[in-house]
Design a protein around this nucleic acid. Sequence first.
DNA 1: CCTGGAAACGTAACCGATAACGATTGCAGT
DNA 2: ACTGCAATCGTTATCGGTTACGTTTCCAGG
Lengths: 340, 340
Amino acid sequence: MIEVNAPATMSDVARVAGVSTATVSRVVNGHYGVSARTIAQVRSAIEQLGYESSLVATSLRRSRTNVLGLVTHSFQSYTAEVLKGAMKALSRSGFDLIIYANSDLYGSYSEGWEKRHIARLSGTLTDGCIVVTPWGEVQSRTPIVAIDPVRGSTAPSVTADNLAGATTAVEHLLGLGHRRIGFIAGRSSLASAWSREEGYRAALTDAGIQVDPTLIGQGDFNPESATPLARALLQRADPPTAIFAASDGMALKVLEVAAELGFSVPGDLSVVGFDNIPEAALTEPGLTTVDQSMYQLGYEAARMLKSLVTDEWEGPRQVVLPTSLVVRGSSAPPRSAARG
Amino acid sequence: MIEVNAPATMSDVARVAGVSTATVSRVVNGHYGVSARTIAQVRSAIEQLGYESSLVATSLRRSRTNVLGLVTHSFQSYTAEVLKGAMKALSRSGFDLIIYANSDLYGSYSEGWEKRHIARLSGTLTDGCIVVTPWGEVQSRTPIVAIDPVRGSTAPSVTADNLAGATTAVEHLLGLGHRRIGFIAGRSSLASAWSREEGYRAALTDAGIQVDPTLIGQGDFNPESATPLARALLQRADPPTAIFAASDGMALKVLEVAAELGFSVPGDLSVVGFDNIPEAALTEPGLTTVDQSMYQLGYEAARMLKSLVTDEWEGPRQVVLPTSLVVRGSSAPPRSAARG
DNA sequence: CCTGGAAACGTAACCGATAACGATTGCAGT
DNA sequence: ACTGCAATCGTTATCGGTTACGTTTCCAGG
């Protein structure tokens, strides 16, 4: 039976041990200048009361807390992968992790969520923060590492090689024989969205195909944003034979719309996504996508942040991780394509 | 460009606005007794400095923070599902969520992790906590809801109907014709592990089969714990024709060992797990398992905690959610079984 | 003009812990 | 016995914000 009832404070311990709070603090932190006898008394009182130092009070007084923060707007599959990676990087490192996620109380406020989150945590509670897909450039007294930063940011960040990944994805479709390839873009302020669109354009251009702006739908990475865009693309008189979506979440919505409109996948339409979230493997057919290992992004971000906090970081402050194409059943040659 | 540089404090705001910190506090919290002119001045200063109140300082002074905590020992697939559910329940509720996960700094300390975590958060930072699979009974000044509590706990908790789930799983194997069914148990202190073993025993007994203790391996829910146990079961002179593992993580290890020892699944051996983690659908063959919707557990736990905190909870304090069997490729009739 | 009371605002104590600093004690060296 | 240093420990300011309480201001009513 573990008791945390009415948490004992440091002054409770001091009273029981018959010493001052300063002495208790010294014992707790292993500082110099306490006799063995006093240490024993204090230890005993701590044991007896089940005392645990308050993270809040400690962090207010001290600057260093050995806690790193991770702030995120929403919590989705890829967020979980990031977390797993970050936890792995921090295991046995002496750093605990606090994840702060808001309840989206202020609808219109959500645009600056990272500012609020970081200000609340970074004041004193954490030694540094990882920010997942921020809306803007973020600064703070303590180090910050962005995962998937805004375009043009020069702050420390970890991101996937979105350009190469998108290029490979579109080249895959081109290799299958597709010539009219639609694209559903992500939120344009993000570097990732921009790079993925660039990859799409570059692959087409390199293949000698002129980019058709009407085949590009402007989404925002929110899965729901893809639904009307996919519908628009597929209800044209001349629908594309393939659609490349800038995220798996949006790609899954494309699959939904395709089914709804009677397009068979991959017979009538090939679909390729980006991210390789777990759900991508569960659809029927499985979603061809670009794997960017969110786990790895989380791992590297935590590793970098830890080093920045302890002032040991040596490497580049902008890390780019490789991507790889995962071919599943949602992509195939177009029905009209001549073999070879 | 968002600036959080050198976070402004309340006294900064007070200085700029030419008032005392008390007045700033009153404006921030919308308290009575401030003239319209002063409110405007303070608001302007807040805007100008980009002031955000410090969660730490606020929570130290005030008891209520509108932040709920979730503490977990490790971060695995099911933890992510729980989080998603909890976030969903809290969306637009006015409560933010803090997840605290330790880095396992103290190897031997990990046994009482929830005590430390809760003491650190619950002191003042959070209004209540969800504890995922605790090691012991936990008490706190603030409300606590346990997901998958210890056996015999009477504290608020949310748990799956492990008894029914396990019974159904074993009945499924019995229905396929299996008679020698191995079991790999979970950490026995957890109610879930105990119930799953009870379900296993009950199903066998009901079918008129005597439980063979040598077919039961004592695992601890840690996937690695299953490897030697599975090896021992399969290297017997008379190996079981099916193995039911108390968690998917352990079941996946059984699949590994089976492959290693040349058992084909489901030909030579049927394997059934429990949890229905995403990975269970990705193996070849897919893992037959019992779905317990960790998402739903997280959702209900957060909903209950929120109500406990606001003192509005009406329902039972011990919630049990239904489970369902998900049949995939890893279970089939035993090779030796007569048809029908 | 004086008084009462409410509104508006500042002062200071306080939450729990830390650390700079000062005070006390013990002990060795002279 | 006296000095000096080190070991030990308590006092107090401090972190940022909240709130009980006291003080000032202002206006209405007598």
